[in-house]
Design a protein around this nucleic acid. Structure first.
Lengths: 217, 217
DNA sequence: ACAATAGTGTCTGTGAGACAGTATCGA
DNA sequence: TCGATACTGTCTCACAGACACTATTGT
């Protein structure tokens, strides 16, 4: 057997698992659901959808993001494909993991019970704890967390976690959360200077100097 | 439908496509096969294998590498999963692309006709040309080429393209091929200094100063 | 001696890191 | 005026880039 010149083989189930990150209360959170069916009933899991025969992987990811968050036009990228044989005890499922980034604030309704079983889970807490997670989803979360930490260093990926307009202290905070360390204001501003442009607006109502709003250049 | 709590869905075919890179004649080459069956008969394609129901993705990749090159213990990593609906005109196939790196010299037999249909194709030439490639394999090659160029900057991935023992001019050449530009000797040596260790051997038989052999630290 | 390639010493400019200072709001 | 946070100027140091120089082989 060589190349595709094979006529006999078995088919497998393919799913897209969604790693939906957002920032809430100055913490990195991931969207998860509580399972009420076996296997792993009662455990938390990443939401996922099966890939349709006439659906691309990206399309399945977009559909899943829409179903879980109600949001469209969300940044997403394919992460990695997990294919261990026994990752689902019922049957063989290949899982293509996607990472989606939702700007701070846009998923607040989740905590507000607008959906039945969805919740935002603190990523660092979860990874540090021994809390059991369904399937191999803890590994997937770890992988995505790592990718995010890497990409914040050399891409503009952090911008997808703030809104259209943002203050620099706000953006800096996101960088700090993803990097896991504090940054110097002056240096941070020099770093992002050529990626942003000023708006004419500033924040108001705080008992200190207002901060200017910027947007992605 | 939410999460895995679905009981009805269709199954798909999953394949692993292999991007086997090596360096030959100071050029980056990729291992390809000439198809003699439809579709794309006569075109060149990446070798691939279907994933067995009781086989992990990594295991399928290892099996494919063994089948195509006869080599074991080759560096490989998962690249990306391609899932366009019509990427194979016959049926729906999800392809998990893997990249493998073979040290210079270890695939010389390919050109020597020891295998019937395998060949080493010059990557830059292929990507620059309009030569038709089967399926979406040109896109896969481009993706892998890019990943390799990126990773050579911040990892030790280039070491997998030279043998156990190597000279620094040889290693530098590999870096230059992957980066697509020339490097300064002195700077290059400073960069890799802490990743290598001297051996007691030097090259001989050349009409100039011999170069010392090093190995990965 | 010479051609050819291996290998080293050192100057310079750029940019990240660190810190101290100034600016502007509400109370 | 004061507390709090926004924002800026500048020094330092490590490191990549550039280039000139020395070293060692076969012919």
């Amino acid at each position: 057997m060589k190349g595709y010149d094979s006529s006999q083989f078995e088919k497998l189930s393919v799913a897209v698992d969604l790693l939906t990150f957002t920032v809430e209360d100055n913490r990195l959170k991931v969207l998860m659901i509580k399972r009420d069916e076996t296997p792993f009933a009662g455990k938390i899991a990443l939401p996922g959808v099966f890939v349709g025969v006439n659906e691309t992987l990206d399309a399945a990811a977009v559909r899943g993001i829409k179903e879980e968050t109600g949001l469209k036009n969300i940044y997403y990228e394919q992460l990695y494909t997990f294919g261990d044989v026994k990752r689902d005890p019922r049957m063989r499922i290949i899982s293509v993991a996607y990472m989606a980034l939702v700007p701070v604030g846009q998923l607040d309704y989740v905590a507000g019970e607008r959906t039945s079983d969805a919740m935002l889970v603190d990523v660092e807490d979860l990874l540090a704890s021994r809390r059991s997670v369904a399937f191999d989803h803890k590994k997937i979360i770890e992988y995505g967390r790592q990718r995010l930490a890497n990409k914040v260093e050399y891409t503009d990926i952090a911008f997808h976690l703030v809104g259209e307009e943002f203050t620099l202290p706000e953006l800096q905070k996101v960088y700090e959360i993803l990097l896991g360390r504090e940054l110097y204001k002056a240096n941070f501003r020099k770093k992002v200077a050529d990626m942003i442009e000023e708006t004419d607006y500033v924040t108001t109502g705080q008992a200190h100097r207002p901060s200017r709003l910027y947007r992605r250049k």
